[in-house]
C-alpha cells in the first residue's frame, strides 16, 4: 500500500516509521525543514519539504497514485483543506484526518473525509480512565452529530443504588445501552436493579454528560 502523510508532527513521524516497518510505501510532506530532515536522517528520503496544500508539492509526492492520504498537521483547518484537495483534485480513494476540535467530526464526515480520528477524545478517555474516583469516561463520538458514548461507574453511595433501571429518569435523548455487572455484561432489561460498582455504557448528547453523570452518581 502507498500512503501519503501530510504533517510530520509526532503522530506523522511515528506513523511513517510504523508503516515503513510493516512494508508499506510512504511519503511524508512537511513544511518545516528540520522536521523533514529528521525523517531523512533516520529512514532515508521519504519526506518532502513543502506546503501540503500546494497541488504542485502533492503531485511531486505522488499523491495521484496513493491508496490513502493521512492528514496529521495538528491543525483542523489545514487537515480539512488537504483532504478536500486530495479527494477532489487527486481522486485518492481514501482520506483520513486527525482532528482536535471534537465538534468538527460531523463536518469532516459530511465533507467526505473517510476516517476522522478525534485525538482529544482518545487522550481524554485514557486519562479519565486513570483518574481515581472519576467514574465518567468518554468512549467515543458517534456518527450522529452531537451524540456521545460514555461510561459511568456507580459509586456505592449513589442514590440510584437499589433502584430499578426503568425508574431512573434520564435526560432526553440519553439511553443506557449496556450494563456491566461483576458477573458480565447484559442489555438493560426491565426489572434490572442497579448496584454499586455497576458500569453503565450510555448514549447521550454533547453537553448532557454532566447531567447524566449527576443522576447516576449523585447521593
Amino acid at each position: 500500500m502507498f500512503a501519503v502523510i501530510v504533517g510530520c508532527s509526532e503522530i506523522g513521524y511515528h506513523l511513517a516509521k510504523s508503516l515503513l516497518a510493516t512494508g508499506h510505501e510512504v511519503v511524508v510532506v512537511e513544511k518545516d525543514r528540520e522536521r523533514c530532515q529528521l525523517l531523512i536522517d533516520e529512514v532515508g528520503g521519504i519526506s518532502l519539504q513543502g506546503d501540503g496544500t500546494d497541488e504542485v508539492i502533492l503531485k511531486q509526492a505522488g499523491l495521484a497514485r496513493a491508496d490513502v492520504l493521512i492528514a496529521v498537521t495538528g491543525r483542523d483547518d489545514t487537515n480539512l483543506v488537504v483532504c478536500q484537495m486530495t479527494k477532489h483534485v487527486f481522486n485518492v480513494p481514501r482520506t483520513m484526518a486527525v482532528i482536535r476540535d471534537p465538534k468538527n467530526e460531523a463536518l469532516f464526515h459530511l465533507l467526505g473525509v473517510d476516517v476522522v480520528v478525534n485525538s482529544i477524545h482518545l487522550v481524554l478517555a485514557s486519562l479519565e480512565e486513570g483518574i481515581p474516583g472519576r467514574p465518567l469516561v468518554h468512549l467515543s463520538s458517534l456518527s450522529a452529530p452531537g451524540t456521545e458514548l460514555i461510561s459511568v461507574s456507580i459509586p456505592s453511595d449513589a442514590g440510584v443504588v437499589g433502584m430499578r433501571l426503568e425508574d431512573v429518569e434520564l435526560p432526553p435523548h440519553s439511553f443506557i445501552s449496556l450494563v456491566i455487572k461483576k458477573g458480565g455484561a447484559s442489555l438493560p432489561t426491565d426489572g434490572l436493579v442497579l448496584e454499586a460498582d455497576d458500569e453503565l455504557v450510555a448514549v447521550t448528547m454533547t453537553g448532557d454528560e454532566q447531567t447524566l453523570y449527576d443522576i447516576l452518581t449523585g447521593v
Binding site: 491543525r75 483547518d77 480539512l80 483543506v81 468538527n104 463536518l107 459530511l110 465533507l111 452529530p145
Partner: peptide, 16 residues
C-alpha cells in the same frame, strides 16, 4: 488572513 482558517469556518457556517 489565513486561507485554511477561512475554508474551515466558511464550511462550518454553511453546513453545520
Amino acid at each position: 488572513d489565513d486561507d485554511h482558517r477561512n475554508a474551515l469556518t466558511a464550511q462550518i457556517a454553511r453546513h453545520i
